[in-house]
């Protein structure tokens, strides 16, 4: 356990250093996010003025966007790391860690999740301050749902990462997946059961229950949360399993890393 925490610490430090060192780069992303939040806020006002509804859909919009960003970041974090590090020749070093690649990638994702969560919380706070609109967000209910949903994203990252190990150049396809995520999280999984089994769909539904229907974790219930984690873990098992198959092929053919 302590070893895993040290691993997480190492990645956290590295991500943090790079974020700071390349802050101009990071700032671009942060500003974009800020502008999008502002737009979402403004859009809400516009829509609500038009329709004359006092509602809580803005929370829904903001959290929906945040969920999409996290799904994307997590997915990209794995698939990009595997691709870039294999090109540059550091992937082998990660592979030689006695923790095993699964834990190493897990720690990498967890570290950037923590950092991104922090950044997003700060931006959200600043957006609220500057726009004068305050959101009513139930972080304690949202966080466990968010984490459970990200399991599916992790799975997708491993799946695509595995394919990258073998096919090397599949960028154009990986770009597409951003939009597939939007589709997944906007499916009406509440009504149609099998849709819950798709990556991100059920998590998005629970998020909407929290933000739009104002439910909290207790109202959602342990069963639903458990179901979310079961779906997430199943995705992860499948994604990681496929990754391992690809890895095996890559190791047999000497294609792990650059060659």
């Amino acid at each position: 356990m302590r070893e895993k925490l040290l691993l997480l610490r190492a990645f956290f430090k590295k991500e943090w250093i790079i974020l700071k060192r390349y802050s101009v780069n990071s700032l671009g992303g942060i500003l974009t996010m800020y502008v999008i939040f502002l737009m979402l806020f403004a859009g809400y006002k516009g829509v609500s003025n038009l329709a004359g509804i006092e509602g809580d859909t803005m929370e829904g919009l903001v959290v929906g966007y945040a969920l999409w960003v996290f799904l994307l970041i997590t997915y990209q974090d794995i698939s990009f790391t595997l691709r870039i590090e294999s090109q540059e020749g550091t992937l082998e070093q990660l592979y030689m860690s006695p923790h095993g690649i699964g834990w190493v990638m897990g720690a990498k994702v967890a570290a950037s999740f923590l950092i991104n969560l922090l950044i997003m919380a700060i931006i959200l706070f600043i957006t609220m301050l500057t726009s004068g609109v305050s959101l009513n967000l139930d972080f304690f209910s949202l966080l466990p749902v968010l984490v459970g949903t990200l399991f599916s994203s992790l799975a997708m990252g491993f799946l695509v990462g595995g394919l990258t190990l073998i096919f090397k150049r599949i960028d154009s396809y990986t770009q597409m997946i951003q939009f597939i995520w939007i589709a997944f999280i906007s499916l009406p999984a509440n009504q149609i059961f099998w849709m819950r089994l798709l990556p991100g769909s059920y998590g998005a539904t629970l998020v909407r229950n929290i933000t739009i229907s104002n439910q909290n974790l207790i109202q959602i219930g342990l069963n639903q949360l458990l179901f979310l984690y079961i779906i997430g873990s199943t995705h992860l098992a499948i994604g990681y399993g496929i990754y391992k198959l690809c890895e095996r092929k890559a190791m047999r053919e000497g294609m792990l890393g650059h060659y």
Partner: peptide, 20 residues
């Protein structure tokens, strides 16, 4: 291979890989 991270300093590389 690079074997090290180009965006980290000498010290940071040593630290990171020790942690890894």
């Amino acid at each position: 291979n690079r074997n090290i991270y180009w965006r980290l300093t000498a010290k940071e590389n040593l630290e990171f890989f020790a942690g890894l």
